[in-house]
Design a protein around this nucleic acid. Structure first.
Lengths: 329, 329
DNA sequence: TCGCTTCTTGAAAGCGCTTTCAGATAGCCA
DNA sequence: TGGCTATCTGAAAGCGCTTTCAAGAAGCGA
């Protein structure tokens, strides 16, 4: 307790507080006495008392759909870097792609005490933003763009459309999609919409039997492609919601005797660690996770500290060309 | 503020507190009035004030070497499940395989306020446990066993030795190791020690040129195997520190014209998602991450709540046999 | 109806910091 | 030396909850 330090240093708790928080205007001898006393006692301030007194929790919350997902982990990690530099702690929670759960977790964080909140995407429970507003803390959304709320992300529809255009430029006309679950997921939904629009713009369409929605993971990708084949003649190219899905689809395609990219071009999403090492190396849409995390962190810190901040930061995703895509035979 | 709720419901803050914390002994009509008032006002208790008053933070810290590492993420995720069920928040920090950094992050958590702490491994900064003791909170170590401190984990030396014995049973005599960095990492070190001991027990030795230490990742595995080949004739089997390393080594082996498992048997660690999908499917040592996370969570919650708890919980790793291992030619 | 026990309830005292405010001390110039 | 300003410092008042303690209300048996 600060009390003990004060007694040992022969000063008041006010002075202890001033020294430990680096305020100027404490005479050198007292300052040193306090430092030494704190050191001797192994004094560690009580965060709750400090938070109560300053009305600052020095913590920032983040609610992501799945903390086991590589894409979110990477963003959280770089987000945390920035928070840590500014002296803030990250408290992360899992929403599991469910709006009710997201609301529950966010409320939990709000109650626990955070000075800012990071969310993923632009689709949330109708009550969520009211609660955040009541808590009076800044929020930033990531992974997609929003016209209503501050965000750091990219245009999911446009980046997926770019992939579709690239495939069409190669000469593909039958293009399929295997996405993860799209319910309450604006990223997944926007990507499919973007692809469909790009196809439509060139007079093509996304056939329903080539539009597959599955659960994430390698197994999901395998099942998805199997399902696509069951729907009729296969497309000559597919765009997958994650690299894991792409990997699974490639395994299934190979098992069916299709060669990649000869019979089937494949594009993934996220540029996972393993993407360049697949056989063939996977063409994928790289999300600049580190930049998104940093920008989201900087954004929130700035607003917590009362500095002005741009509402929308666009960090474009990038199409990384590798050997899994080629013109159709 | 509870004050506002009290005024609106026509009771005192003491009653508000009693109702909101589910204490019995409040008359039904007042209870309902409080509930309604809290609802109407969208009341969210101030966590700092509550923590200060109860001397409970309702938060648990975890310091792991790398929050981007799949193995740790899985454990953290199941650890969080349990904490969440008990009403606790997880606050995770990154130590980056450096004891000074680990100490710094742990201190940060202690200062911030946590009721318990999870650590990875049994090697820490000499000051760390003194600080934890001063904070008076329980700690649990994971991923390895310890005779000094409460832990939930497995015998890294024994599980790696089991893999080595399996390879020797298949007839391998020249066995290599590619591990991640071992500095300040008792898991990595113990595994190599275990393998060396298993070999010695059968009159074999781990040749220095077959004992490679590299940084984690697929690229690391590739470099590691390249390095091993540069040291002389290759072993007929290798045990890798992670599945990523194994994947990288397999790529390099294939590039050098070695067939797997014909010319080279490969064993990984962790049973990553992609392990069963590699070509050939990877034999690996599966760590029961979910069980470890749950056990660590249960352990800490119990001790926080003053219930007795066993000091050591062993959750054995398991050798998963797949097609990447076979007798040598 | 009275006295005693059992329920309910609110006043008030913390929890351990930060921060304001005013007083004490020191420094400086005339 | 006196008076004024610039520095330092500590007392004390919160911050918003929880929890104790004592008192009032209600219920019960005689």
């Amino acid at each position: 307790m600060a009390r003990d330090v004060a007694r040992r240093a022969g000063v008041s708790t006010a002075t202890v507080s001033r020294v430990l928080n680096g305020f100027a205007g404490v005479r050198a001898d007292k300052r040193e006495a306090v430092m030494r006393a704190a050191q001797d006692l192994g004094f560690v301030a009580n965060g709750a008392a400090r938070a109560l007194s300053t009305r600052r929790f020095m913590a920032v919350g983040a609610v992501v759909p799945n903390i086991e997902n590589e894409a979110f982990v990477r963003v959280l990690s770089s987000f945390q870097d920035r928070l840590r530099q500014a002296g803030y702690t990250l408290v992360a929670a899992n929403a599991g792609y469910d709006l009710e759960d997201e609301l529950r977790e966010a409320t939990f964080l709000l109650e626990r005490g955070v000075d800012g909140l990071m969310l993923v995407g632009d689709i949330h429970h109708p009550d969520l933003h009211a609660r955040i507003a009541r808590a009076g803390i800044p929020v930033v959304q990531t992974f997609s763009l929003s016209r209503e709320r501050p965000c750091v992300g990219f245009d999911n529809a446009a980046s997926a459309a770019r992939a579709a255009n690239y495939l069409m430029d190669l000469g593909h006309r039958r293009i399929g999609v295997i996405s993860g679950l799209r319910k309450d997921n604006d990223r997944g939904g926007a990507r499919v919409t973007g692809i469909a629009a790009a196809l439509a713009a060139r007079g093509l369409r996304l056939a329903p039997e080539h539009d597959i929605e599955i659960s994430y993971g390698i197994g999901g990708g395998r099942d998805g492609f199997r399902q696509m084949l069951a729907g009729g003649p296969p497309p000559t190219a597919i765009i997958c919601g994650t690299d894991q899905i792409a990997f699974g689809a490639m395994i299934e395609a190979r098992a069916r005797g299709l060669s990649i990219p000869g019979d089937l071009s494949v594009i993934g999403h996220n540029d996972s660690d393993f993407a360049p090492f697949l056989d063939p190396p996977l063409t994928t849409i790289r999300i600049h996770s580190v930049e998104i995390g940093h920008a989201a962190g900087d954004h929130l810190i700035a607003r917590i500290q009362g500095r002005p901040m741009v509402r929308l930061t666009e960090i474009d995703a990038e199409l990384i060309l590798r050997a899994s895509t080629a013109p159709p035979r």
